[in-house]
Amino acid sequence: MASSARVTQPYRKGLTDGLIVMGHVVAALMLREMKTRFGRHAGGYIWALVEPVMFIAALLLFKVATLGSGLQDANAVASLAAGVVSFFLFRDIVQRALTAISGNRGLLMHPIVTPLDIMLARSLLEAATSLVVTCLIAAGIFVLWGEGLPAAPLALLGVLAVAAGFGLSLGLLLGAAAAVWPVVERIVAPLLRVGFFISGVFFTPASLPPELRDLLLWNPLLHITEAARAAWLSVPIETFGSLTYAIAVAWLLLPLGMLSERLARSWMAPA
């Protein structure tokens, strides 16, 4: 009975009409998010760049100190950068989608705005930010090392798109779950931190013992960071990952995420 209960909208009639309205709403939400997050202080923008740079620098110093690798190797830096930007993009999208509803309940008093719109707008903004940050980091590496620009930029763009898509699919699912069970919001943050350690940000699958490697390769993120690395580096590397696997998981999760967002809408009443 509950599934037939509904309020019809004059705004989204056919599919084309609905998509046009959605486009307008998502664009308006992106502008709103941009002003809210980065708006009156430049701090928001700067942090988006500083955080990954700090991680790359810290991981680089760690490698130099423990493994005795040299600082002069641009490929070592690029390898770290590839892992950091692709993993952070995924992580940030999951986090933003997760809090999209709890932070915007009042918005849902405008039924023209759907929870999906809010999550999509946030994800697109995250992806755009990540793209700019990636370009700046690549430029920074080139300035400091004289080489290390992404060897296959289009392939890298594709990998980032997969990372974003995977993040959105999972974010939809978790965001819907968080609307029903608020505790989900607090569980996911530590899980994402664990994810950082098993997703190949600072190690490559090639450097792992085979048993551990086979276990960790269930994690689609490991495949994403591997593909990002392969696209960025100009030297061939021994890869174990397959981007196809990550894409398949993201595609399987997407309908689940969209379905759960629908089902959870009853719990998403405006405050």
Binding site: G106, M109, A269
Partner: peptide, 25 residues
């Protein structure tokens, strides 16, 4: 249209405002 009914349908073929005094958005 801000809340869904538990059962039944609310049909609206006109543009309906939000409750006018609402400031939570």
């Amino acid at each position: 249209g801000a809340e869904r009914p538990d059962a039944g349908i609310i049909r609206r073929d006109v543009r309906v405002s939000w409750p006018m005094g609402f400031t939570g958005g």
